[in-house]
């Protein structure tokens, strides 16, 4: 039960961040060229992704042994989470720029504005929305699929993913503006830490590690990865401060 709720949280937060990026692309194309084609593109991409998750999810959870599945999927979730953590650490330390939904919106709108309509059908608008939703959705699909395969509960993970998509889409419909105020880096950092912890826990279970108190063991893992993140950010910020001080002097 505990693992299911960890899974729901990971699926919801991870899917929400990626849905914000997909929403920005659909909004930019819709506002620039009209709503029909980009909405069709988004729905087509979502349908393909849902089919992928259901087919692969069912196939893997019924055909592959649980230990192998947990080891492999746990390892993949861990690598996925570490990648998000790494990016978030570098962004928090100011070494790479923060993700800017406003800039992404403006760039997509510029690109969509100059593309021509072909044979009466707005294929460019369809294609931009399809590609954006499909690529961002691949990450959502992976998170949902991995959480489902590892926790053995496709319903809870799927519910987390769908709840995130519906929430973000609902906000998009109400605001008709990219969600620039969402602290994307902070959420990605938190989700990265959560996924790395869950990935370690599941991979360990697959390897035969007897975690004490079952899913409660995720808490010390969370603390460990959070500590590593904070330490990294502190270490990365220190030389920059020294440099600024010496320049000021």
């Amino acid at each position: 039960m505990g693992a299911s709720w960890w899974g729901f949280g990971a699926a919801f937060l991870g899917s929400a961040v990626e849905s914000v990026e997909a929403l920005t692309i659909v909004l930019a194309v819709g506002v620039t060229r009209g709503w029909r084609a980009p909405l069709q593109g988004a729905v087509a991409a979502l349908a393909i992704l849902a089919a992928l998750v259901l087919t692969l999810g069912q196939l893997l959870t019924t055909r592959v042994s649980e230990a192998v599945l947990r080891s492999v999927i746990g390892g993949l979730v861990l690598m996925f989470g570490l990648r998000w953590m790494h990016k978030a650490i570098l962004r928090s330390a100011g070494l790479i720029p923060l993700s800017d939904e406003g800039a992404r919106y403006a760039k997509t709108a510029r690109g969509a504005g100059v593309a021509a309509r072909l044979a009466g059908v707005d294929w460019p608008a369809f294609a931009i929305a399809f590609k954006g939703v499909f690529l961002e959705g691949l990450e959502v699909a992976f998170i949902v699929f991995a959480v489902a395969a590892s926790s053995g509960d496709l319903r809870v993970a799927g519910l987390g993913g769908v709840a995130a998509i519906v929430t973000v889409a609902g906000l998009g419909v109400v605001l008709r503006h990219p969600l620039t105020r969402i602290p994307e880096n902070t959420i990605k950092h938190a989700v990265g830490i959560l996924l790395a912890s869950l990935g370690t826990f599941w991979a360990g279970e697959g390897f035969g590690v007897g975690w004490p108190l079952d899913a409660v063991s995720v808490l010390p893992l969370l603390a460990l990865y959070l500590g590593a993140s904070r330490l990294s950010i502190t270490l990365l910020r220190t030389p920059v401060r020294d440099l600024t001080a010496s320049e000021a002097a």
Binding site: L95, A196, T200, A203, F207, V209, W211, L224, S232, I233
Partner: peptide, 29 residues
């Protein structure tokens, strides 16, 4: 974990992974 069969193996693995996070951040920086 094949040798030890206890949570210590899992936590040792997690500690090594956490250290690698710090190392990767420093190298990237």
């Amino acid at each position: 974990s094949r040798q030890v069969h206890s949570a210590a193996a899992g936590f040792a693995m997690a500690a090594a992974l956490a250290l690698s996070v710090v190392g990767e951040a420093l190298v990237s920086a």
